[in-house]
Amino acid sequence: MTDSIHIALQDVIFSRSGRRILDGISLEIPRGGVTAIMGPSGTGKTTLLKLIGGQLRPEQGRILVDGQNVPELRKKDLYRMRQRMGMLFQSGALFTDLSVFENVAFPLRVHTALPEDMIRDVVLMKLEAVGLRGASQLMPAELSGGMTRRVALARSIALDPELIMYDEPFAGQDPIAMGVVVKLIRDLNSSMGLTSVLVSHDVPESLSICHFACIVADGKVIGQGTPEELRNHSSERVQQFLTGQPDGPVPFHDPARDAAEELGLTAEDSR
């Protein structure tokens, strides 16, 4: 694993309730860029992020973050590694009993011994970066969905991580909120020199900001490269996903018994 690779997944297998979600997936995520992991719903994109963060353990394979194999880390080392990671959850996952200010201050209070006035300055700077300094005294219940995600983003960058993972950052956002999130991901990545990994099925938004993308389906990577390389990819399956065609290699109909047989129709009925 070279220094330019921040995360590497090697032959990772993961199953849940007897169903294989990831089937020997291998993937390399370069340092310092935005990498989009795309794919249809239910293909294990969020599972991939949880494996990288050590919240799930694979049945087989290695997950290297900065050269450390995450599943083999002891709890203490795993928690130490997570301090260098940020994760934006789909729901925001703000602590509902704490104000916006206290939510962003939470990791600082737990992991640093900064004096109170410095914590205040850092929190306000992070909130300023996501455009919500004026909302610092609001409670999470008073925020819109887009604002919740921006506060969660401010919280996830509070400790200046080296890596940030976004779980479906565009899902359920109105066009303006989506534009704000796209801008924030791009700006934070360039200004903080982060490695950003975003998991999404919103193709135009993801391809507009990523440097590298891969498409996951059936537990494997079916296509990867720069956005331009993906757009010109020869695989029909990749093209069906990128263009959103309802029928193709992934059929419109799920596999099922013959319709006439299931509906109890005889040859005479059909005449």
């Binding site: 919240q55 928690y79 590694m81 959850f89 789909q90 729901s91 996952a93 509902t96 990791p107 737990v110």
Partner: peptide, 18 residues
Amino acid sequence: ATEQLSSMEMMGVDPLRR
């Protein structure tokens, strides 16, 4: 359900302790 425990873990904070 609202992923607050997961987010705590991802911040390097043990929910069992906290």
